[in-house]
Nucleic acid binder design. Structure first.
Lengths: 225, 225
DNA sequence: ATAGTATTCAATTGATTAATTGAATACTAT
DNA sequence: ATAGTATTCAATTAATCAATTGAATACTAT
């Protein structure tokens, strides 16, 4: 017969484990990461993550059961969003912990990205300072739906897919800093490669919108998750 | 044939999921919570958590594989500790998220603790101020090994098991504030009940040592996890 | 060398989880 | 009312996970 204190603790940790179980799947982590950039339909999430629509829906049900995401109906479409900004912050703290504790993270990054011109070393502190001071042109190369959800104040939206068409809009006499979803998104790597090939002075910042938010940058957008 | 970007993302989220899998078990969460209070042997962890020694060891192997805990040999004994202070912070952010997102947490707390005299409502902000100003007697009622690992500067160590023997040491003219491992530990609930039954002016603070650390209280001890 | 103690390992069993597939449901346009 | 589209549900299968049990390993005291 379990004593009441033991029963209490078992019940409490069972609840905490609901959060752990929700993020124990790489698939659900990717869905959360995408939702950190802004709300999305099931179909859009399936496309971005490479999952089937049914599988995506099932993982979203798990995240919803753990109360990490919420859903709204918009006609035929269901729009999923993070339940709270705190979920983004938690995701970010999990990522930072994984980065600092698991050497494999850096190894994988190096294996897939090392040597790419968009990845050359930058003076991150100086670059962040230049961004804060509006001393550079800041490009957000994510899809515009993510830009609209939230972006650095002053950033221009030039989704990677539209970059070729917008080259003439960009300054050649000022440094261009491109960002996307975060350190493990290659949109800005590719953008910088394209820009540099065309003679622009372009550099990548690996921070994503949630990192900028945590660093105190003013974020503008229609989604206060 | 998976494209390289897809393979990269799959590999990265697989790494992140290692953290999620590690904390998907209520048993491992309790072990982490205990280790947040200070290093412990397998046997001590098994005793506190109600698990068998073999089961405890297996869960510790999982946590070690995720690089969240580290082990040192001390003769016959293996001492487990958290691998980094950041693991504590992550654990705490998971707990705060669960508290804010899962109504069941509050419900369980109420079901097991509601009505107990050690749980009466307190003006938490005022109490924290009084603690900070040394205007109250602060009791740490955890086992002394946990007190030694880290405690609020100025706190007295009176483990619950030894409280009866130390009553004569305690002031009757000053308010006594007792704390233990955190909101889901009942050591301080019981301590306050005993103290009040003996005429002391005692109140419980539900914060644990990691909450105090996050709130900026000076922490003294021999364990800088 | 041996007995005792602490811890880990390995195999087994039962439970849980993830992906797939096809059906069901909900909504819209006609 | 019907067809099309988006999403969810349910059943199935395979993989993973958790607890148990007994054996193995590591260390200490004698």
């Amino acid at each position: 017969m379990k004593n009441p204190t033991r029963a209490f603790k078992d019940a409490i940790y069972e609840q905490f484990a609901r959060v752990g179980k929700a993020i124990s799947s790489p698939r659900r982590l990717e869905l959360l990461d995408l939702l950190c950039q802004g709300p999305r339909t099931v179909e859009a999430l399936a496309n971005e993550s490479g999952l089937t629509i049914a599988n995506t829906s099932q993982h979203l049900q798990v995240l919803r059961a753990a109360r990490l995401v919420a859903a709204d109906k918009d006609g035929l479409y269901v729009i999923y969003r993070l339940a709270d900004q705190q979920v983004c912050e938690f995701f970010r703290s999990m990522r930072l912990l994984a980065e600092s504790r698991l050497a494999e993270v850096e190894q994988i990054k190096n294996r897939f990205l090392d040597g790419r011109e968009g990845m050359m070393p930058v003076d991150r502190t100086k670059l962040l300072k230049l961004v804060r001071e509006d001393a550079v042109t800041v490009l957000d190369v994510r899809p515009s739906v993510e830009f609209n959800a939230g972006h650095i104040a002053g950033a221009l939206s030039v989704p990677l897919k539209e970059l070729q068409q917008h080259l003439s809009d960009l300054p050649r006499d000022q440094e261009i800093v491109a960002y996307c979803r975060g350190p493990y998104c290659v949109l800005s790597v590719m953008a910088v490669e394209i820009l540099r090939a065309r003679g622009f002075k372009a550099i990548r910042l690996e921070e994503g919108i949630q990192d900028f938010r945590a660093l105190g940058f003013p974020i503008i957008g229609n989604e206060e998750v």
